[in-house]
Design a protein around this nucleic acid. Structure first.
Length: 481
RNA sequence: GCCCCCAUCGUCUAAUGGUUAGGACACCAGCUUCUCAAGCUGGAAAUACCGGUUCGAAUCCGGUUGGGGGCACCA
């Protein structure tokens, strides 16, 4: 098989969303798996809706996901000369013609047809115009568009996943391919670029399925070999309807800001419509490349399942080296970095090593990056809690107080360098015997102020001897009266 | 309204004429455990419906129903 060349061609009229990202991913996987080429093309022919900020968002998001273009990015807005040449050729050969019908006129006709229960289609009125009439109108400066002549016949076209699909051109009518020679429309520019870029496979969303016969017609008129078309099923919302803002659907950049990892998003997206060999579902981009087969793509629309995304993100969060997470975390709410040391709001000074330890404790309990520090924020700021929280099940204040005093007593004997979690756990185990609750629980609350947190001996090590004793005494004071 | 596509547990999916219909997420129970999270073990849970082809159908064919997409001087 020839080395494939594929493209992902978003139009910058919005941020990169989940569906588009998955289309990009499958294009990328197919190219890489076949040692082919993956291209990025910006389909920005709509001058009004296209925005530079959206293009930047799309490019940033793709980079973040690790989906890089193999060649320089092509922008359709920079290829107007090429399109103009093709439009003129189509006009010359009689495959396209000028249409001077006004929008109002067309809309009225459309409504008429609709009320009669007919298929709304252009009548082909301006097809009849002689070249003389056309030239006169042109000379007068009348507004026009350029339409493609559509044959009156039924055809069948091929989709890689679905096979032969019937299509009746008689239901279509001559469609607009350009507003004028310098303002081509997507329906025209896409096949032109696919041809000149040597695209072998067009892998795109199923919403483009009905566009395919139209574009195939252009390939035919221009006597070009068309690419293979592969239409991907759409991603639906959790309720099976079209994925939209209503479902909390976010752009890739918003997921990034919300603390999702690219590995998680990639893994999640890949499994929406594709599956590797065997039963495993945790899979890296490199492994996907090795296994990817176009034939294995699904035809069924997949619903977006948020809890599975969370599952993947938790998993990849735990896999991620603490050093990498350090780069991603925002500490500004909790203090400042000074020469590789972190000065927290509560006055404590943490070495880089301790910060990594804190991250390690936090990431075990977080779903998204931003939650890591949130789950262990007691390390960074002063906290308070209700006295009753210190109570373990049906133990008494008196019992808790005695236990905390005993812990304080034992901890005080340790040298600073002995203040390590294994050692501390040993002490607590000895103190508690069989019944650990009345010892571990109050200490954990004293050190975290929370119902749920990492184990107390881990907290104590990070806090260090002095702060740990201080926090225990604070708890004892609460129990004092 | 017309055209097209699609149909396996709640969700994502595996099984391309012969399996006790497999896995994952979520859910439930148990184990572990000071809490939370993680982990381990187990459980409940599906071939939309009706016909046909076949010794045999989730799988092939037809219809019904349901869902989705499209019918622009957007892409």
């Amino acid at each position: 098989m020839l080395k494939p060349r594929v493209r992902f061609a978003p139009s910058p009229t919005g941020k990169l969303h989940l569906g588009s990202a998955r289309t990009a991913l499958f294009n990328f996987l197919f190219a890489r798996s076949q040692k082919g080429v993956f291209l990025l093309r910006i389909d920005d022919t709509d001058k009004i809706r296209s925005k530079k900020e959206y293009e930047e968002d799309i490019l940033d998001s793709l980079n973040w996901l690790g989906l890089y273009s193999d060649e320089e990015i092509v922008r359709q807005s920079e290829r107007l000369d090429l399109y103009e040449k093709i439009i003129k050729a189509l006009l010359d050969k009689g495959y396209a013609y000028y249409c001077f019908c006004s929008k109002e006129e067309l809309e009225a006709r459309r409504q008429e047809q609709l009320t009669r229960g007919e298929v709304p289609r252009y009548s082909g009125k301006c097809r009849q115009l002689t070249s003389q009439e056309v030239n006169q109108k042109l000379a007068k400066g009348e507004k026009y568009v350029i339409r493609l002549k559509v044959p009156e016949k039924k055809i069948t076209y091929k989709d890689f996943l679905r096979g032969e699909i019937p299509y009746d051109f008689r239901l279509l009518g001559d469609f607009v391919i350009a507003k004028n020679e310098r303002e081509p429309l997507y329906l025209l520019t896409s096949p032109i670029d696919d041809h000149y870029q040597g695209i072998t496979h067009v892998i795109r969303g199923e919403d483009h399925l009905p566009n395919t016969p139209k574009q195939l017609l252009i390939f035919k008129y221009l006597e070009w070999e068309p690419p293979i078309f592969v239409h991907l099923p759409l991603i639906l919302g959790p309720d099976g309807s079209k994925l939209s803002k209503r479902h909390g659907a976010k752009s890739i950049s918003e997921y990034r800001e919300a603390g999702f990892l690219p590995e998680a998003l990639i893994n999640f997206l890949a499994l929406l419509g594709w599956h590797p060999e065997g039963d495993r579902e945790i899979i890296t981009l490199e492994e996907m490349i090795r296994e990817f087969k176009l034939e294995k793509l699904n035809k069924t629309p997949a619903r977006f399942n948020f809890s599975k995304l969370i599952f993947f993100n938790r998993y990849y969060l735990k896999q991620k080296p603490n050093n990498d997470l350090l780069q991603l975390l925002d500490f500004s709410n909790y203090g400042n970095w000074q020469n590789d040391n972190f000065l927290a709001l509560n006055g404590l000074n943490y070495s880089r090593e301790k910060i990594l330890k804190i991250i390690n404790l936090g990431k075990e309990r977080a779903s998204v990056v931003n939650e890591i520090l949130l789950t262990v924020d007691f390390f960074f700021k002063d906290f308070d809690y209700d006295k009753n929280l210190l109570l373990w099940k049906n133990s008494s204040f008196e019992e808790i107080k005695i236990n905390l005093q005993a812990i304080e007593n034992e901890f005080r004997k340790l040298k600073e360098e002995e203040f390590k979690s294994e050692k501390l756990k040993q002490i607590l185990d000895n103190l508690a015997g069989e019944n650990k609750g009345p010892v571990f629980w109050p200490l954990r609350v004293a050190l975290s102020g929370k119902e749920a947190s990492p184990p107390p001996f881990e907290l104590a090590e990070v806090f260090g001897k002095e702060k740990t004793l201080e926090l225990i005494n604070k708890a004892l004071k609460k129990l004092g009266d």
